[in-house]
Simulated scan of single mutants.
Amino acid sequence: MDIRQITPSYFVSPQISPEDAQTIKDAGFVRVICNRPDAEIPPSHQADAMGEAMRAAGLEFEVLPLTHQTMTPENVARQMELASAEGPVLAYCASGTRCTVVWALSQAAQKSSDEILSTAANAGYDLAGLRPTLDAIAAQ
Rank of each mutant, 00 (worst) to 15 (best):
L82S: 03
M80H: 10
T97E: 11
Q79I: 12
M71A: 10
I41A: 01
H45Q: 15
L105A: 08
A53V: 09
S112F: 08
A77R: 02
L64D: 12
A136W: 01
T119I: 06
A39L: 08
L66C: 11
M71T: 00
S118C: 11
A139V: 09
A83N: 01
A123N: 10
T70N: 04
M71G: 00
E40A: 08
S113A: 15
C93E: 02
I6T: 06
P73I: 06
A138V: 01
A49W: 07
P18H: 08
G51P: 09
I116Y: 14
S13L: 04
Q140P: 06
A27C: 06
P43G: 02
E86C: 05
N122K: 14
Q79V: 12
G51H: 03
E81I: 11
G51W: 01
P43E: 04
R31I: 01
A121S: 13
A139R: 06
A77E: 06
A138Q: 09
N75S: 02
A128N: 09
A21K: 07
M54P: 09
L117T: 07
S118P: 01
S95M: 02
L66Q: 14
Q107P: 12
E81Q: 13
P8R: 09
H45K: 14
T7G: 08
D126R: 10
D126K: 10
Y92I: 03
Q46R: 12
R31V: 05
K111Y: 14
Y125P: 15
T133Y: 05
D48F: 08
D26A: 12
A104Q: 10
S44M: 15
